[in-house]
Design a protein around this nucleic acid. Structure first.
Ligand SMILES: [Zn+2]
Ligand SMILES: [Zn+2]
Length: 361
DNA sequence: GTATTCGGACCATCAAATAT
DNA sequence: TATTTGATGGTCCGAATACC
């Protein structure tokens, strides 16, 4: 269990923007069964179920990392936020990957065979012969199909990795089918392996003045100001973070003022979680470079559609192009990609999300 | 300003590997 | 035999450069 580490207390925000719609306790679906079964519990809020998430998903065991807003007025975190730059990705209980920040642009269509002129010029051709471009440039008479090389045969390839399916043919865990039964291929969620959570941060908060009890008979965990040692509120009842932040998730605010908290028994605790609410400063810093970047910078930085480069830069050097009216196959001499199986190297990046840990026991 | 060049992202195909 | 994987051979976008 996470314990230790005295931290300064963190009295949260005093001002809060209008509440984002949240669903009050109890949570829907099977999450409900993981909540503290007995009342009174202080308000516990969680984000609305994002589209594509299964409300009945059985959450895997924790720990979870959740992003939480500042505690409501009158409350304080038992522990402060972890240092900037730290934190972990939450486990995303998603059915499908959240929609990419930018709607994918339509797939580029290619002609089956470009004419030699267009191929040489690396320009768009069409099915007609002469093609539109050749007509435009007055080289219609030389507009002919090139000769496609035959693919080599007999090349051994080594064992394949099974990517999207389990042995049983089911979509692998963490990659359930989308609503229309397909597996999301555009931006599959990255298999999430929860790193060991930092031991010292809890999203729990409790009222000011709440009598903190010693932990394991030992008073410790004093706040920086020495005023708020934490109470032995854990081990907590089994508790799951509802819907942790994910890329593109709408910010969630705590509704304020919070419902009146019944006089809490000595070892109940207010648990808070919720969704990333981004501090204004943070959110504006968020370039959300998610592809929007107009990369009008110097070197061409083509936005990769969907996932990363699929040729890993392994392409051979293109030979010098020939004039458009040349019949030579200059372009064909260029390399090709090495589809290395486009694997996103990293999972979603949760920038600017203030997250804290929540433990499941 | 327009035209051309060309790096490399993107696409379609299909043989090898694997499942049924 | 059917399906999946992933390398191959290709197209063509768009920045850089050349040209007028
Ligand atoms: Zn053409
Ligand atoms: Zn042509």
């Amino acid at each position: 269990m996470a314990t230790e580490q005295p931290k300064s207390t963190n009295t949260g925000g005093q001002e809060h923007p209008p509440p984002h719609p949240v669903v009050p306790y109890p949570p829907p679906g099977q999450y409900a069964s993981h909540y503290p079964p007995t009342a009174p519990y202080p308000p516990f809020y969680y984000a609305p179920i994002p589209e594509g998430h299964d409300p009945n998903a059985v959450p895997p065991p924790g720990p979870y990392i959740v992003a939480i807003p500042p505690p409501p007025p009158g409350m304080m975190y038992a522990y402060p936020a972890h240092p900037p730059g730290q934190g972990y990705q939450p486990y995303p209980p998603v059915l499908a990957a959240p929609p990419p920040p930018n709607p994918a642009r339509p797939k580029r269509k290619q002609v089956k065979m470009a004419c030699t002129n267009c191929a040489s010029a690396c320009k768009r051709c069409d099915e007609a012969r002469p093609c539109e471009r050749c007509v435009k440039y007055g080289i219609a008479d030389s507009c002919v199909d090139g000769v496609r090389k035959e693919r080599k045969k007999g090349i051994k390839r080594g064992p394949y990795k099974r990517k999207n399916r389990t042995q049983s043919g089911e979509p692998a865990a963490g990659y359930p089918a989308t609503a229309n039964g397909e597996t999301e291929s555009a931006a599959p969620p990255v298999p999430y392996t929860a790193p060991p959570p930092p031991e010292s941060y809890y999203p729990y908060y409790y009222p000011h003045g709440y009598p903190p009890a010693p932990h394991d008979g030992q008073p410790h965990h004093e706040g920086a100001n020495g005023q708020h040692p934490h109470a032995p509120y854990y081990p907590m009842p089994p508790m799951y973070a509802p819907y942790p932040p994910y890329p593109g998730a709408p910010p969630v605010q705590m509704p304020y003022p919070p419902p009146a908290i019944a006089a809490a028994p000595a070892n109940s605790v207010a648990a808070s979680n919720g969704k990333a609410e981004q501090p204004a400063a943070a959110s504006e810093a968020n370039g959300d470079s998610a592809g929007v970047s107009p990369n009008k910078t110097k070197k061409r930085a083509r936005t990769t559609k969907g996932n990363e480069r699929d040729d890993g830069g392994a392409k051979t050097k293109k030979t010098k192009h020939l004039p458009v009216d040349s019949q030579t196959d200059g372009d064909a001499a260029r390399g090709k990609d090495h589809h290395l199986g486009s694997q996103p190297e990293t999972g979603p990046v949760f920038n600017n999300i203030e997250s804290r840990t929540m433990v499941a026991v």
